[in-house]
Design a protein around this nucleic acid. Structure first.
Lengths: 136, 136
DNA sequence: CAGGATCCTAGTCGATACTG
DNA sequence: CAGTATCGACTAGGATCCTG
């Protein structure tokens, strides 16, 4: 017996919807690569394998928490490998897998679209911001 | 004399870096389309223009706050247009612009890569999760 | 050198209530 | 119908300290 009306209905709809969305491969991948640091790490490793500290230096502003977290996620997704060399000071190398390399074109596609249309976006924003009428 | 050493140095480095990153077109676009609702709105409007309430119904689980926020952002970026018809109950139509339509292939590219490799990712995750040796 | 554990802040998102 | 405004829950992310 439903005390619920619109509110709970929407809540349930949302749950169902989220479940559906969570299944969607595009969403999952989008979640994966949309991360701020993921693309940066991917690009950094595009040139070849790097050590942890090299990555940290290369990406500069990243906290080690985020770097480690990002690397772990990418490793988990099979996009890169983590190789530990138990030398005196431990050495860890990260490198893209074959799968990891196949995603580079996608990132490139995004980059190309971006570079092609970013000015249009900026223009649109500019136009939108100090908007219409007679403002200056 | 500066009390700061490594800490503040890194903070400044990060600021500089963030400023640089903020300039990057790819980053900006990635930020724009990586949003949970953006792709959904984009896809919903791919079929043609829709009214606000239609969008709300179509996307189902979205709160009107998020929907409005997403629509405003996309309008600001020039990806869609907002047309107000001052009828008795106000009517507002949203529709993709030419620019908005050009980004659909990019989303499609992501979707295709996703569908092609999502099983590999799942396998990698599965492999990574109950991980190593012979454990299960 | 590489990273785990903690604490804490700032931005995100949803629910609710109200407006034109 | 199509929003705006506000509040509170949640969480991502950064700083710091500590370990193997």
């Amino acid at each position: 017996m439903p005390t619920m009306t619109a509110a709970q209905r929407r809540a349930r709809d949302r749950d169902l919807y989220n479940a559906y969305v969570a299944e969607c491969p595009s969403r999952q991948v989008l979640d994966a690569i949309s991360d701020k640091w993921v693309t940066l790490v991917l690009n950094a490793l595009a040139d070849g394998p790097l050590r942890y500290s090299d990555l940290a230096r290369r990406i500069a502003g990243v906290s080690q928490k985020m770097l480690t977290q990002t690397l772990r996620r990418l490793e988990r997704d099979g996009l890169l490998t983590r190789t530990i060399t138990p030398s005196v000071p431990v050495r860890v190398d990260y490198q893209l897998t074959g799968l990891g390399e196949t995603i580079l074109p996608v990132v490139t596609a995004i980059k190309q679209w971006s570079e092609a249309h970013i000015d249009a976006i900026h223009a649109a924003r500019d136009d939108y911001d100090h908007g219409r009428s007679g403002g200056q």
